[in-house]
Design a protein around this nucleic acid. Structure first.
Length: 429
RNA sequence: GGGGAGAUACCCGAGUGGCCAAAGGGGACUGACUGUAAAUCAGUUGUGUAACACUUCAGAGGUUCGAAUCCUCUUCUCCCCA
């Protein structure tokens, strides 16, 4: 309706770009903003500035986070500029209970160290040469109190309290510290500082990104486009993927681990994973999902395909010295079947070295063994595991929680707990 | 500034002198069924080689034969009023 005075129709090439960039996106605000920005960039020859803000407190990258990064990579491949903003300053002032005066200084360094490992990990997905990294302390640190007051006068309390998590916490009588209200302002100010054209984020960033648009407009800038990617659901199929919930696949994890984790996701979220985590075409994805749903193909095999597609991205196939192509995803697939279909021990498993003092009369109590191997937190937990039939040694189920195992049996043995936890036991010598 | 409520195990949450190692849910783990899916069912979920003992209910003291429960102080949170 209100598009009557928008620019001329886009070229076929730009339409193609828009289609690619919108793949998997949850929403773009405003609707046709991306088209306009791209068209302007094409006509002026100026690359767009694509902003992503990062909190430097948790330097681990998993598939959920990779969704956004992969989208950034697409922008890079189309010639645009990606600006990663490390929220060093927001993280510094963010600690709700900074007790001593020395602590902020320490964490300043920790923040910086975290940020650097972050950048290293980002390079796994982004084109490092086309990525600009900036710390928001660069401009936030220069604001004096008067400027902060000025900045905060541009937002009302009611407006800030619209943010979902604030509203929720408020209605549940949970504490909200005053400084937390400044977060959206700080993030919005970041957009002004770098004159962002597009800000990427998960849907949980809605408020902050839109605040950026407001502020840019008030500062006389062309407001940034908000490009929201959905939050990838975690392995449990319910909550968002996050490390703290333990329902994640890290992009630096081994092919074997990735394969196992991906094969354990719910059928219902396979499609999302295909769309957001792989480059398989949407047409083919629809076909695969349809086949799985109709029973034409075992859903498990579709999931295998998914796992292999994802593994190929983070552990790409390479050419060996003899000229043959080595596919790590294929290896992981084979390994999985060897272990879980054929019931054999995995080729690689964590090793536990057992020191002499664990043994008495050349035997060791099974529960002690489990604790030593890190497979149980306490003897009590170990006993329960044994009693529940979850423990086996060299393929033989251990049924007696009081059993003592002789040294010779333990040497080089495979200890298994539950369906998927293995350890190789090695005697110290 | 004044008044009131609260802090319980991974999380939520019952418990207001002994029957409390602490209900119920969620989560997690183990087993069965499977496709290491989901759903479902059963069991486990403070520590100790364990029908006994030990350490836990924000922190520190106290009352009592006996405290998560009562008292005092401290820390933190929420609500109402100003």
């Amino acid at each position: 309706m209100e598009n009557e005075n928008t620019s001329a129709p886009l070229s076929a090439e730009l339409l193609e770009q828009v289609k690619l960039l919108k793949r998997g996106a949850q929403s773009v605000v405003p609707d046709n903003g991306l088209e306009q920005k791209l068209a302007r960039s094409a006509s002026t020859g100026k690359p767009l500035k694509i902003k992503l803000g990062l909190d430097p407190t948790a330097p681990d990258i998993h598939l959920g986070f990779a969704v956004v990064l992969r989208k950034l990579r697409q922008f890079q491949d189309l010639g645009h500029q990606v600006i990663i903003i490390i929220g060093d300053y927001t993280a510094l002032i963010g600690d709700p209970s900074g007790r001593s005066a020395t602590r902020p200084m320490l964490s300043a360094e920790a923040v910086h160290a975290n940020a650097m490992t972050y950048v290293d990990q980002l390079a796994r997905i982004l084109d490092r040469d086309k990525t600009v990294v900036r710390f928001n302390g660069e401009w936030l640190g220069k604001l004096d109190f008067a400027q902060l007051v000025q900045l905060s006068s541009k937002f009302t309390v009611a407006r800030i309290m619209e943010r979902e998590d604030f509203a929720n916490r408020f209605s549940q009588h949970l504490p909200i510290s005053l400084h937390e209200l400044l977060y959206p302002l700080a993030q919005a100010y970041d957009s002004v500082a770098i004159e962002a054209d597009v800000e990427m984020g998960g849907l949980d960033q809605t408020f902050n990104i839109l605040a950026g648009r407001d502020l840019q407009e008030k500062e006389g800038q062309d407001p940034q486009i908000a490009l929201f990617m959905p939050l990838l659901v975690g392995l449990d199929g319910v909550k968002k993927m996050s490390k703290s919930l333990g329902n994640y696949v890290g992009i630096a994890e081994s092919p074997d681990v990735m394969f196992g984790k991906l094969l354990s996701i719910s059928d219902t979220i396979m499609r999302d994973y295909f769309v957001l985590c792989t480059d398989v075409s949407l047409e083919e994805i629809d076909k695969l999902i349809k086949q799985a749903e109709s029973g034409e193909v075992n859903p498990k095999d579709v999931k295998r395909r998914l796992a292999r597609e994802i593994i190929d991205i983070y552990h790409p196939p390479f050419t060996a010295e003899d000229g043959s192509l080595v596919s790590l995803s294929a290896r992981a697939d084979e390994e999985w079947h060897r272990v879980h279909a054929a019931g054999q021990a995995p080729a690689d498993m964590p090793e536990t070295v057992l020191s002499d003092d664990l043994f008495a009369d050349d035997t060791i109590w099974i529960c002690k063994l489990l604790v030593a191997a890190g497979m149980a937190k306490s003897n009590g937990e170990a006993m329960r595991l044994v009693q529940q039939g979850g423990v086996s040694l060299n393929g033989d189920k251990v049924t007696d929680s009081k059993a003592n195992v002789s040294r010779t049996i333990v040497d080089n043995a495979v200890l298994k707990v539950g369906a998927r936890r293995f350890a190789r036991l090695i005697l110290a010598s």
